[in-house]
């Protein structure tokens, strides 16, 4: 096929693409995670961040502890009822498009803490995009979760728009 347009003029130095795809590519290659690490899973996340597993290979090593600067919320550990309002507040402070990964059995479902103090899954408080199983998940599982988020992010902007308007009502939404 003959090359036309800008590419014909500028050769290999320019690639034409859709704005949507360019933005999605930029976003997925530089996710800024907020680690809501409460328990054992957070120790495994330390492994994900350190040399052997090295989350920076996926462009997500800039761990932010300010929700306003982060677009990926990773909940690693048990969330108790006492912790729930804090989690919600952090989620609310993040700007769209924002993504939530629930890492480990406790965050996903309360795990084996089926008792008076443990929230039986964070999806009762905030919407979750990807669930990672394990108690705690192995570092590879964390990376798999991150890759799934990257796949979701690469979807067209219409999807993102629809997603940001989704109707979620959690236990703490009055």
């Amino acid at each position: 096929m003959a090359v036309t347009g800008e590419e014909a003029i500028f050769g290999d130095s320019v690639i034409t693409t859709k704005l949507d795809s360019a933005i999605a590519w930029a976003r997925e290659s530089s996710m800024w995670p907020y680690i809501f690490g409460t328990a054992c899973c957070a120790i495994e996340f330390m492994s994900v961040a350190s040399s052997k597993f090295d989350i920076s290979r996926f462009g997500a090593e800039v761990v932010r502890f300010s929700p306003r600067q982060a677009d990926l919320l990773i909940i690693a550990g048990t969330v108790s009822y006492k912790q729930a309002p804090i989690l919600k507040r952090i989620y609310d402070q993040m700007t769209e498009p924002k993504w939530v990964v629930s890492a480990g059995a406790c965050a996903c479902s309360g795990g084996f803490y089926d008792n008076y103090t443990t929230l039986q899954g964070i999806d009762r408080i905030i919407p979750v995009d990807v669930y990672i199983s394990g108690c705690p998940p192995r570092p590879e599982a964390f990376l798999e979760g991150l890759m799934q988020i990257q796949k979701l992010q690469a979807k067209p902007s219409k999807y993102l728009e629809k997603r940001s308007k989704r109707d979620f009502k959690g236990l703490l939404d009055a």
């Binding site: 409460t38 328990a39 054992c40 120790i43 550990g77 048990t78 108790s80 006492k82 912790q83 804090i86 406790c106 084996f112 803490y113 089926d114 008792n115 008076y116 103090t117 443990t118």
Partner: peptide
């Protein structure tokens, strides 16, 4: 903030079933 009800959970598990709970004290 990380109170997970360890002591209450122990009261309805057998001694060997409690071992995994103890793992998660000082993880």
């Amino acid at each position: 903030y990380l109170h997970r009800g360890f002591e209450k959970s122990c009261e309805n598990h057998t001694y060997n079933q409690i071992i995994p709970y103890t793992d998660r004290l000082n993880y």
